[in-house]
Write a protein that binds this DNA or RNA. Structure first.
Length: 210
DNA sequence: AGCCAGGCCAAGC
DNA sequence: GCTTGGCATGGC
């Protein structure tokens, strides 16, 4: 199987995902950034509860978050889990980015913020700032290894990102949809304990263990 | 009712 | 450089 085939099969089976933004049209940068931090190793259902808490409290707002006490944020984001860490990460992010023009925000700047790793940074860049960075996550590695697109399960983030970016068109829509489709496949079929019956790429897969 | 979720950081080798 | 432990809620 080729990478672009995987994309096409997933798009045909699942349709467009249209992931982000969910709530705010005008400040998607903030919504995506907070959502990306909250979803670190966390089910999106739980993230939605936390996001709604923030929105209902009027806290999905740069000024409110900047001034907010960390304890207030902890209480609001509790459903997302790891809330002690994530509240600090959110404060770190808002403090670092507040008042900085979007043109000056790049990958290395985001990575310098404690709590923003490679996947979170690339999610913010791609979905929040429309920059051409492909988002690699645990599902991507698992699916690419099982299907045989890569030969070892533990590949470095940057290596897999480069490999994918060199094999798909440099198009924001494709980048956004492909990552979302990979997550959807991971949720529906390519779980830790795979549900291969009904998987849309079953016929193209090597079914490697783990 | 245990397993798992759209990671990250710090510490240890 | 790679591996491990800690962080936490809620759904299935």
């Amino acid at each position: 199987m080729k990478i672009i085939q995987l994309y096409e099969v997933l798009l045909n089976s699942f349709g467009e995902q249209n992931w982000w933004p969910v709530y705010s049209g005008e400040d998607k940068f903030l919504e995506v950034s907070i959502g990306a931090i909250l979803t670190q190793n966390t089910n999106w259902n739980n993230v939605e509860k936390a996001l709604k808490n923030l929105i209902n409290a009027g806290f999905l707002n740069w000024d409110k978050l900047l001034k907010a006490d960390t304890e207030q944020i902890k209480q609001l984001i509790k459903p997302a889990g790891f809330y002690n860490q994530k509240a600090i990460y959110i404060k770190n992010f808002v403090s670092a980015v507040y008042g900085v023009s979007k043109e000056k925000i790049n990958r290395s700047f985001l990575l310098s913020i404690k709590g923003i790793g490679e996947e979170t940074a690339d999610s913010i860049l791609l979905y929040g700032l429309d920059r051409l960075y492909f988002v690699v996550d645990a599902y991507t590695k698992r699916i690419f290894y099982r299907t045989g697109l890569i030969n070892r399960p533990a590949i470095r983030y940057g290596s897999l990102q480069q490999y994918i970016q060199q094999n798909i068109p440099p198009d924001l829509k494709v980048y956004k949809e492909f990552h979302a489709l990979i997550v959807e496949l991971g949720k529906r079929a390519c779980r830790k304990k795979p549900l291969c019956a009904g998987c849309p790429v079953n016929h193209l897969c090597l079914k490697r263990p783990v």
